[in-house]
Each structure stands twice: as C-alpha cells, then as structure tokens.
C-alpha cells in the first residue's frame, strides 16, 4: 500500500523544506528568542539581587540612624541628670553657705549681747556698790538701837535703792 511506503520525491522535498527551515531558524530564529529571554532572566535575577542588597543596606542605615538617635537620647538624659545634680549641688552649697553665714552672724550677735551684758553687769555692780556704800552710810548714820528697827531700816533703804535704780533706769 502506498500509504506506508515513503515516496522518494516527497522525501526530497521534505529534506529541502526542513533543511531550509532548520538552516534559517537555527541561525536567525530560535537562538535570538532564547538568548534574549535568557539575558532578560539574568537581568531580572541580577536586578532582584541588587534590590535585595539595597534593601539590606537601607535596613543597615536605618539601624544606624536608630542607634544614633538612641545615643543622642541617652546623652540628653545624662546631661539632664547632670544638670539637675549640678543645680541641686549649687542650691545645697548656697544653703550651706547661708547656714554658715547665719551661724556666724548669730555668733557675732551673741558676742555682742555678751559684751553688752557684761557691760550692763559691770554697771549694775558699780551701782550696787554705790548703793551699798550709801546704805552703809545711812545705817551707820542712824545708829540703830535694836536689831528689828535696824533690819527694817535696812530693808527700807534697799527698797529705796531699788526704786532709785528703777527710776534711773527708766
């Protein structure tokens, strides 16, 4: 049957057609398509890789910025703490100084009071001495007979002296 016997003429034409197709397309057809797809794939791959790299680099930069920010904040805190401490110290110092000053002034005042007191005591002493002399004089002058009258007299004299003292002081 001719269906299953290959015909020579057709073999010849098939060789020519397929040879032509293969000759042209193996050189100018398929390699161009496959090559450009391969190069595109490579390009996409390398672009993806570059994007990944850029992303990771960006992440690094972000981390760095974060770190900087944190450092700055830490330093700010430190400075603030230091400033507070400084302020406190200054206030403390001032307080202490004021206390010292006050103490000194108090001391000075005390001393002054003491001297005033001493001065006053001295005056009192001299006044008492004078009064005692006056009293003695008067007692002696009266020459009192009995003990009781002497005593009352002496008392009266003292009262007089005190009154005189008070009047003088006033």
């Amino acid at each position: 049957m001719s269906l299953i016997t290959p015909d020579l003429g057709l073999l010849f034409w098939m060789l020519i057609s397929f040879g032509l197709v293969f000759g042209i397309l193996a050189k100018f057809g398929f390699p161009i398509i496959t090559r450009s797809v391969a190069s595109r794939r490579e390009h996409i791959e390398s672009s993806l890789r570059a994007a990944d790299e850029a992303n990771s680099r960006l992440a690094g930069i972000e981390a760095q910025a974060q770190k900087l920010l944190e450092d700055a904040q830490a330093r700010q805190n430190e400075i603030l703490k230091q400033a507070t401490a400084n302020g406190e110290r200054i206030v403390q110092e001032a307080r202490e100084q004021a206390q010292v000053e006050a103490a000194r002034e108090l001391e000075a005042a005390k001393q002054q009071i003491e001297t005033e007191k001493r001065k006053a005591l001295g005056e009192i002493r001299s006044t008492v001495a004078l009064l005692s002399v006056d009293v003695a004089e008067k007692v002696l002058r009266q020459q009192l007979g009995d003990k009781e009258s002497q005593q009352s007299f002496a008392m009266r004299l003292v009262e007089e002296a005190e009154r005189a003292e008070q009047g003088r002081e006033a």
Partner: peptide, 22 residues
Amino acid sequence: LSLTKNALALLINSTIMIVLFL
C-alpha cells in the same frame, strides 16, 4: 521529484513558519 500537493504544502507551511519566527 514532482512538486506534489504535499511537497507544495510543505513549502508553504515552511515559509509560514520561517516568516513567523523571523
């Protein structure tokens, strides 16, 4: 080596294929 129906069809189809891929 006559250009038979199949031979001509082969040439036509081959031309179409070459043109498509070019």
